[in-house]
Amino acid sequence: MKILYFAHFREKANIAEEDVDLPEGVADVTGLLNWLESRGEGYADAFADRDHIRVAVNQEHVEFDAAVKNGDEVAFFPPMTGG
């Protein structure tokens, strides 16, 4: 799975993108967030405030109960502020 981090998520996790193998049992966005948080302080800090996390799977905006699997492109970012 390819994971992309944007804006303050990239800064706090200190990574822009990475390829990971999903551990067994991680099947949705919430599960992925829980696993990522366990990988280090930066990730835990980045994902502490879940109300302000937006997520896209394969470039489509989804909710936290959306399924994820190896091969997906998952992106984490804050609410959008374009225009």
Partner: peptide, 22 residues
Amino acid sequence: LKTKAPFWKSEETPDGTKWVDA
């Protein structure tokens, strides 16, 4: 597009650089 296109702004101010809240 302001709320649905994935753009994010960070502002440089005299107090430092900060991501803009929605």
